[in-house]
């Protein structure tokens, strides 16, 4: 009788062994990110224009800046533009109202994304947004940013009084 009882208990214990201990389960998560149009720009604090060695040769200088941009894949666009305030003090070069022959001129180039202004443009207004670079849809800078240069030319008019002159140019980068 004792032997029969042991056999029955052993059989019961085997029946309770959890079958699930050898099974696997897999679940997934979804990571979502929305990549938007973005833009950033870094400019030097000053841009010096200097005259050439020849008397009354033009003042020239360049502004090299870095930028990052991402425009929308569909229907996107963007630009780098600048507005420039009037030169100070008076008596020297002028942005607005000066002789056309004395206009500040600029052109631009880039080693990165975007279309530059390869043809010199006159700057004769303090309220106009002058285009430096333009971006099409799905424009993307390199990870470290792209580099562009604005080349400035200012005629050296003998009529300018001697002295130091400066004008502040505000650059704006936009991306849509």
């Amino acid at each position: 009788m004792k032997q029969i009882t042991l056999i029955v208990m052993a059989a019961f214990a085997l029946a309770l062994t959890p079958v699930a201990s050898a099974a696997n389960d897999t679940k997934s998560i979804t990571i979502q990110v929305s990549i938007a149009a973005e833009a950033s720009i870094v400019l030097p604090g000053t841009t010096s224009l200097t005259a050439g060695a020849t008397a009354f040769s033009d003042f020239t200088g360049s502004t090299t800046f870095t930028y990052k941009v991402r425009t929308s894949k569909t229907g996107g666009s963007g630009a780098v533009t600048f507005q420039i305030a009037e030169f100070s003090p008076s008596g020297g070069p002028r942005i607005a109202g000066g002789p056309a022959a004395d206009n500040l001129k600029y052109s631009s180039s880039t080693t990165g994304v975007g279309s530059a202004q390869s043809t010199a443009q006159s700057v004769n207004s303090t309220t106009t947004n002058y285009t430096v670079l333009s971006f099409a849809a799905d424009a993307k800078s390199s990870g470290s940013g792209d580099t562009a240069t604005v080349n400035w030319t200012l005629p050296n008019d003998p009529q300018y009084s001697t002295g130091n002159y400066s004008a502040t140019a505000t650059f704006t980068i936009s991306a849509l």
Binding site: A37, P93, N164, T168, I173
Partner: peptide, 23 residues
Amino acid sequence: IALFTTAAFAQQKTGTTTISLTV
């Protein structure tokens, strides 16, 4: 993880440089 940025709005940044010369 959903990063809902305002993709439909233009992003804009500015910076300044002072152009200077000595006559």
